[in-house]
Design a protein around this nucleic acid. Sequence first.
DNA 1: CAAATGTAATAGTAATACTATTAAGTTTGT
DNA 2: ACAAACTTAATAGTATTACTATTACATTTG
Lengths: 225, 225
Amino acid sequence: MQNFLASIKIPVNESLFLKDPSTSELGQKIVDGSIELMNQLGFERFTFKKLATEIQTTEASVYRYFESKHKLLLYLINWYWGCIATRIALETKNIELPEQKLKKTIHILTALPNPETDSLISNELALKEIIINESAKVLITKDVDEENKVGVFSVYKALVSNVAAIINEVNSDYIYPNMLASSMIEGSNQQRFFAAHLPRLTNVKDDSDFVESFYTDIIFKTLTK
Amino acid sequence: MQNFLASIKIPVNESLFLKDPSTSELGQKIVDGSIELMNQLGFERFTFKKLATEIQTTEASVYRYFESKHKLLLYLINWYWGCIATRIALETKNIELPEQKLKKTIHILTALPNPETDSLISNELALKEIIINESAKVLITKDVDEENKVGVFSVYKALVSNVAAIINEVNSDYIYPNMLASSMIEGSNQQRFFAAHLPRLTNVKDDSDFVESFYTDIIFKTLTK
DNA sequence: CAAATGTAATAGTAATACTATTAAGTTTGT
DNA sequence: ACAAACTTAATAGTATTACTATTACATTTG
């Protein structure tokens, strides 16, 4: 399995690690292993001790890289959104029509990635599942304000800004572009969680991508003057 | 301060408590106190020991009523959605026009409650803040499936179903009514959190209710044939 | 008024997030 | 070449906290 940190360089806020995990073999094993294990166990059941056992190192060595499992998860999330922002930039830069650009953006943000064609990284699907299942646990916290101060969410805020700009290219009069962007990004992940566990909260029909269809429909109808 | 459990009887799933807190004075103090304290401290920092100190009882006594703080939060959430479902039923039953009915429903679900006029309970605002800040922590979990089995989410699912039905009264052809309902309910709370902590993810203008306006606009444009 | 039941207090245990200290290996300057 | 300096990792903890077992007291009921 190819190492995902090696494949592309995404800058991650320095306050999220003690030692940059992309600079050593152990660091990369910690990141790769935590994606796998956190996805398996969920954030609560995931511990540094279990991770250490899994990748054959010690708990203390993991603490050399990450101050806490909270910050480790923030690191993964940051890294993920950095990748998505890069994908949107790359895959829309040659599209002229604002409508087509928005359609592509909605696709990237709401559809499940195809590991064959879409992925910048090897385990993007596992990472996306972590985003779906665990994001809220580090975002919706009493510590948001302090973490926001040191720039932990700047990647994410920039992404929402960019999507909002694409929305305004389609309709410059629309007054809630950031809300539309953030509610699509967060909502699409949540709808996927619901589809898997509480399907009565959704309208899952077949294996076609209903989440993408739902948001494409809503957004274009909302922006039509 | 009037006791909120006494004011209206909302049935809550029995698997959520060991002893029904509405049947004793201590039980009511536990519920009232936990709303106050959990809102102050947040779910992580909130402990049964701190609660016990606050309401002048013991940790063990709290464990008589609730198996864990996880289930206590689920109890509060269930009770809250029971209240909201009751409000929707009461406040829309005399409305004939489907559009007006939906407008009222969106208002109840997305606007901040006015304690003077809207509230069935004394501390609804504190409880709503808990819903906004802590819901995801017990909903988005590896245990959802088991908890779903014993009926913990039936109140919530019924609420989404009802709102979906109101949506289909406006446009019977719309094929994603449940997704539209659940994404509004969850999204409006999330947007409020963003507005308070990460305003760049939203479009907060003034003190008018932008969350309600945003969802009213989106939903009616989506349902227009 | 005694048996049964409800309520609460004491004093724990187990798990886990996190730290202090020490040991081993690697690099660098002269 | 080799000692000093620094990087990396292992051991063995501590502190917190969620949760439990047991006992004591109070209240209700036949």
